[in-house]
Simulated scan of single mutants.
Amino acid sequence: MALEVGSVVEGKVTGITKFGAFVELPGGKTGMVHISEVAATYVKEIRDFIQENQVVRVKILAVTPEGRINLSMKRALSPEQQQAAPEGRPAAPRRPAAPRRSSAPIDYSRGPAQPQTFEEMLSHFKQRSDDKMSDIRRNLDGKRGSSGPKRHGGSR
């Protein structure tokens, strides 16, 4: 059977490495699925998504002149399947929302961007600046540790 670029075929996973998985295709040829082509979500550990001897659907991306066959599991999925994260598998890691820096409450009653006097703006700026400086001092105090170097062993 001739392997054509763009066709979707089934194959058996014969080996898994840190960077991808090797899949035996119809006709006895072997291709490789790079880690970035395993799933539509972030893949840190390939074994979380596939196992050796598992039968998988792959799309043939390229066949090099040297005979290497580049495959993709995620491109063999339908567009709807690519959108949804597979059940029971980790989705892409998300960063937690950054905490608000200012402790001053937001006044939503004023409406959208009403002009303030210079004194109000200056007062607000000074308050935010003081809050930030106290946060910085608090963080630095925790990182400084003791006041001097510790000596180990006996005295001199």
Rank of each mutant, 00 (worst) to 15 (best):
A2K: 02
L3S: 04
E4K: 15
E4I: 15
E4C: 14
V5I: 15
V5H: 12
S7M: 12
S7V: 09
V9C: 11
G11Q: 01
K12S: 11
T14V: 14
T14E: 12
T14A: 09
G15L: 04
K18Q: 05
F22V: 00
V23R: 01
V23A: 01
E24Y: 11
E24R: 15
P26Y: 02
G28I: 09
G28Y: 08
K29G: 04
K29W: 07
T30N: 02
G31N: 00
M32V: 03
V33W: 05
H34W: 01
I35L: 05
I35H: 01
E37R: 01
A39Q: 04
A40D: 03
T41W: 06
Y42W: 13
V43H: 00
R47Y: 03
R47Q: 08
D48I: 02
D48W: 02
I50S: 05
Q51M: 00
N53Q: 02
N53S: 01
K59R: 15
L61I: 14
L61P: 05
A62H: 14
A62R: 15
V63G: 09
R68Y: 14
I69L: 08
S72R: 04
S72D: 06
S72W: 03
M73N: 03
M73V: 04
K74Y: 02
R75E: 13
L77V: 03
S78G: 00
S78E: 01
P79F: 09
P79W: 10
E80C: 02
E80Q: 11
E80A: 09
Q81G: 03
Q82S: 04
Q82A: 07
Q82Y: 03
Q83R: 15
Q83H: 11
A85H: 03
P86C: 05
E87F: 05
E87S: 07
G88H: 11
R89S: 09
R89A: 08
P90D: 07
R94H: 14
A98W: 13
P99A: 13
P99F: 14
R100L: 13
S102R: 10
S102D: 06
S103T: 00
I106M: 08
Y108N: 15
Y108K: 15
S109D: 05
R110Y: 00
R110M: 04
A113C: 03
A113F: 07
P115R: 12
T117C: 06
T117N: 08
T117V: 07
E119L: 05
E119I: 04
M121D: 07
H124D: 13
F125G: 05
Q127H: 12
D130K: 11
D131N: 13
M133N: 06
S134W: 00
S134H: 07
D135S: 12
D135L: 10
D135N: 10
I136W: 02
I136F: 06
R137M: 11
L140K: 00
D141L: 14
D141I: 12
G142C: 10
G142E: 13
S146E: 10
S146K: 09
S147Q: 02
S147C: 01
K150S: 04
R151W: 03
H152Y: 13
H152Q: 12
G153W: 08
G153P: 04
G154C: 06
G154L: 11
G154N: 10
S155F: 04
S155T: 06
R156E: 06
R156S: 08
